[in-house]
């Protein structure tokens, strides 16, 4: 999975138009970044790289780019 595909998947999880989400967007500014979206992200990261992630690592992320990096994308 490349960064563009990751962005598109994250936009869907966050119920945003895919053009409306950018890698530099801050998670705290995204209204739908909640526990449901976090579960979706865990599933996405698991499918993309199979890397075992802990929710603590996810909570330390500040931007969409941090999430991509944590998932081993790009």
């Amino acid at each position: 999975m490349d960064k563009a595909a990751f962005l598109a998947e994250m936009a869907e999880l966050l119920e945003l138009d895919s053009s409306a989400l950018r890698l530099e967007d801050k998670l705290e500014d995204l209204e739908n970044w909640n526990s449901m979206a976090m579960i979706g992200y865990l599933a996405l990261a698991d499918s993309a790289s199979g890397k075992k992630l802990s929710p603590r690592q996810i909570r330390e992320c500040e931007t969409i780019a941090d999430l991509a990096q944590l998932a081993g994308i790009g």
């Binding site: 526990s35 976090m38 865990l42 599933a43 075992k52 992630l53």
Partner: peptide, 12 residues
């Protein structure tokens, strides 16, 4: 129930 923590455990 902490959903993300439970899901993470389940995946492993």
């Amino acid at each position: 129930m902490k959903g993300a923590e439970v899901f993470s455990f389940t995946l492993a």
